[in-house]
Design a protein around this nucleic acid. Structure first.
Lengths: 409, 409
DNA sequence: CTATTAAGTCAATTGTCTTGACTTATTTTT
DNA sequence: AAAAATAAGTCAAGACAATTGACTTAATAG
C-alpha cells in the first residue's frame, strides 16, 4: 500500500515500553504513598517481588530512590522502606503572563527551590524573549547554588501561558496575547536553553500543580477551575491531563452564554463576567499594576457596593460552571484555584455555596464537591515546572508505546 | 506497611500485556485501513516485520484475520493484504429505553446481523427482565441461524440505558427510570446469559457506534451529542470513550442553565428545552406511543407555529451546547446523533447553523465542526453491541496493565 | 524453644520482540 | 536479455524483562 494512504494506528510496544512503564509506576506509587517497602511496591503495582527488587535497585543506582531505616511491622522480617530522592530530578517552570513572567525550579517531589520574576515589556516576544531567557538562566544559577549537580538532572523546561493556541488571533484583542501566539516559542526556548520544552495553557499548568503537590494529588478524575486574569479549566481525566486535539481543552472562559437577566439573545464569553480581567474593568484597575493584588485584596477586605455586585455576578456564573463541569465530566472533585488574592477567593467561595444540585450529589462521595486549591500568583509557574517532571516520570499510555522514527506524517 | 493503608498506583505490565496490546493494535490498524499487508502493518504500528508476521499468523489461526490475493504494487515482491474476518467475533447489544427494549447482534466489523424489539411494560425490572432475557435469547438464535459458530465467538453483551447511574433517584421522576437504576442489572444479565456484560448510558453507546462504524471512525477526539428522549454526549477522548469517575460523564441534559429571555434567575435542565421529551410535552404527544416517530416526522414535514417555536428554542440551546463542548474539549469534530426522526433532525440542523464562533474555527481543520451521525432509533442498540467488540479488541491503556488478583482493595 | 509469618534474594526459565542475513518476486535500467 | 534495484516476507539466533519456586533472613506468637 502507498505509504501516504496508510492511516497510522496506535503504535505497538515492546519490552522497552514495559520496562519504562514499570519504572514510572514504581515512582508513582512512591509519590502517592510517601514511602513503601519492596513488598509494598509489589502489592501496589501488581508486579512480582523480584521485578520490584530489580527495578528499585536500578532506580537507586540512578539516584531516584533511596532506602530508609528498616522498620519492624510485626511478625516477619522487617521491611526496608524506600522513598523518592528529592534531588533525583529537577525541572524549570516558566510562566508567561500578560505583564509579567515568572520562573520556578522544582525537584522530583515538587518542592520549590528557586523563583524569579520580571516585568514583561509590552513589546511582545521581540523584546520579551531576551528577558525570559535571562530569567531562566538566573533561576538555573540559583538552583545550582542550592543543588550543585542539578544541571545534570534537569529533565526539562515547562512553559505556561494563556491560551488558546493556534487560533486565528485577533491582533487587537489584548486577551489573546496575539503576538506571542504567532511566535515560535517552543523552538526559541529549546534553542536558548538546550532543554526539552513543553507548553501548557495556564489552567492546565495550575491543574498539573494541583496533581503533583495539591488537592488533586492521587485523584484520577478532577477538574481544576483556574480563576485568573482569564478563566480556564485544567482537566485531569484518568489520571492524566487532557489536552484536546490542539492543546486547547478547558478554555471555558470562552464559552458564550447568556448573561443573567439578559433581555436579548446576545451571548458573551463567560470570562467577561467571571475573571480578574472583568473585575479590573469594573473597578477601573490597571491590570499591569504590580500592586494589583494588594489593591484587590484591600478592596475585598472592605467590599463596596460595586465589588459586592461583581462578586454576586461572578459567583452566579461560577456556580453554573461548577454544576456544568460536574455534569459533563462526572469528576471525583472540582478544585477552584487561580491567581487571585486570597481575600477575594474567600468572598467568591462564600458566594458560591450552596452549590447547585448535580449528579455529583452521591451518597458514596469521598471528596468534597468543591475544594479550594492554590490561590497564589505562583501556582501557574509551579505547574509549569511540574510538567517536565510529570512528562518524565508519571505513568502514561503514550510512554509505553513505541515512538516512530519515520520522518513524514 | 499495613495493606489497608496502601494507595494502589497504576499497575505494572509484562510481556503478556505487551503481546495483548500489540494484537489489539494490529486489529485496530486493519479496522482503520480496511486491508493491509504485513509490511504495511509494520509501518502502521511501528513494530518490526517479524513481529507483525508472528502476530498475524496467530490472528489468522484464531480466525480473526484472513489473507486476500496478493497484489503487485510496483517494484518488489507483491504484498499479501490481510483484513479482519467479519465472522471472527460477535457481540450482542441491548438497549433498555423507557418504553421499549431492543437487541442487536453485530460481528467483528460492526455489521448488524440480527435485531429484536419488544415493548417494555411499565412495571420496571420486575416484569421487564424476563422480556429482556427472552429477547436476547431470540437474537442469539437468529444470529446462530446466520452464523452457525457464532456462540463460540460471542465476546460479550453490551447494555445501554438512560443515565445517570448511581445517583439518588427521585422515584417519581420518569426521566430517571428509577426502578431500573436500583436494580442489579449487570449481575442479572450476566447470570441470565452467561456473557460478560458492560453498561453504558445511551449517549455513550451512540458514541461507541459512531466510533466503530460511523462518523467518528478513526477520529481520536470527538464529541457525540445524543439528541433523544433525553440529551447526552458521548465523549471520545484520546481514542477512547471517557466514562468519568462513576460512568456518568456526558450527561449534558442535566446541565442547569438560564432559559432564553429568562427574567428570573431560575435555571432549568437543558434537556427540558432540547430533547424529544420536551417536544412531546409541547405537542402533547405520548412518549409511549409506538408511532411517536411517525407522528413527529409528519409534524416536521409541515411544521406548525408551535413546532417552529420549539425548533427555534431547541436550536438556540443546541448552538450554545456545541460551542460550549468545543470550547471545553477542543475536539476534532462534533457529531450530532440520536434517536430522532430524520425530518426533525434536518430542521434542527438547519436552525443550528451558522454555528457560534469558537476555538474550533481553525485554519488547519480537516473535519467539519458539526457532522450528522446516526439519527436512527437503533443507533444506541448498535453502540451497545459495539461495546464488547471495542472492549475486547481496541487498544486501551487498561488492557496493557496487569489485573490484580487480590480480593479487597 | 519452636512454629509461623513476612521480606527479600538467587538462579533458572519463559515469553516476546529484535536483529541481520537471507529468499522470493517484481520492476527498472543498461 | 541480463543485471541492478526495490520491496515483501522468512529464518534462526539473540536480547531483554518479567516470572517462578526454592531459599535465606529476621522478626513475633504461642
Amino acid at each position: 500500500m502507498n505509504d501516504m494512504r496508510l492511516i497510522r494506528a496506535k503504535s505497538g510496544t515492546n519490552q522497552e515500553g514495559t520496562s519504562a512503564h514499570n519504572r514510572r509506576v514504581m515512582i508513582d506509587a512512591l509519590r502517592l504513598n510517601g514511602q513503601l517497602s519492596r513488598a509494598d511496591l509489589a502489592r501496589a503495582t501488581a508486579l512480582t517481588k523480584q521485578t520490584v527488587s530489580n527495578i528499585i535497585e536500578d532506580l537507586e543506582r540512578d539516584g531516584l530512590v533511596e532506602s530508609l531505616e528498616a522498620v519492624r511491622n510485626g511478625r516477619g522480617q522487617p521491611s526496608t522502606p524506600y522513598r523518592l530522592v528529592p534531588e533525583g530530578a529537577f525541572a524549570i517552570g516558566l510562566q508567561i503572563d500578560r505583564h509579567v513572567t515568572r520562573t520556578i525550579a522544582v525537584d522530583l517531589v515538587g518542592r520549590v527551590l528557586a523563583r524569579g520574576e520580571a516585568n514583561l515589556p509590552a513589546g511582545g516576544p521581540a523584546t520579551g524573549v531576551r528577558t525570559i531567557l535571562e530569567l531562566i538562566e538566573k533561576t538555573r544559577r540559583d538552583l545550582t547554588a542550592l543543588a550543585p549537580h542539578s544541571e545534570d538532572r534537569l529533565v526539562g523546561l515547562g512553559a505556561a501561558m494563556p491560551g488558546p493556541f493556534g487560533v486565528e488571533a485577533d491582533a487587537d484583542d489584548p486577551w489573546m496575547m496575539a503576538a506571542w501566539q504567532n511566535f515560535p516559542l517552543l523552538e526559541t526556548l529549546a534553542a536558548g536553553t538546550g532543554l526539552d520544552v513543553g507548553l501548557q495553557n495556564d489552567a492546565a499548568a495550575a491543574a498539573t500543580a494541583e496533581r503533583m503537590v495539591g488537592a488533586a494529588h492521587g485523584v484520577d478524575h478532577a477538574i481544576c477551575i483556574y480563576f485568573g486574569y482569564g478563566l480556564g479549566a485544567g482537566l485531569i481525566l484518568n489520571g492524566e491531563l487532557y489536552r484536546g486535539a490542539n492543546g486547547n481543552a478547558g478554555e471555558i472562559g470562552m464559552i458564550l452564554s447568556l448573561p443573567r437577566g439578559a433581555s436579548s439573545d446576545e451571548r458573551m464569553p463567560l470570562e467577561h463576567r467571571a475573571s480578574i480581567a472583568s473585575l479590573c474593568k469594573l473597578l477601573d484597575l490597571d491590570p499591569a499594576d504590580p500592586d494589583l493584588y494588594a489593591r484587590i485584596d484591600a478592596a475585598a477586605a472592605n467590599p463596596d457596593q460595586g465589588l459586592v455586585r461583581w462578586i454576586d455576578a461572578a459567583a452566579f456564573e461560577m456556580r453554573a460552571a461548577v454544576q456544568a463541569l460536574e455534569t459533563i465530566f462526572d469528576p471525583q472533585t472540582v478544585i477552584l484555584c487561580g491567581g487571585l488574592p486570597s481575600g477575594l477567593a474567600r468572598l467568591l467561595i462564600q458566594a458560591m455555596v450552596p452549590l447547585l444540585p448535580s449528579i455529583a450529589d452521591r451518597r458514596d462521595r469521598t471528596l468534597p464537591r468543591l475544594q479550594v486549591g492554590f490561590t497564589d500568583p505562583w501556582a501557574v509557574a509551579i505547574g509549569a515546572a511540574a510538567e517536565p517532571i510529570s512528562r518524565t516520570f508519571d505513568p502514561r499510555f503514550s510512554a509505553i508505546l513505541k515512538t516512530r522514527v519515520s520522518a513524514a506524517v
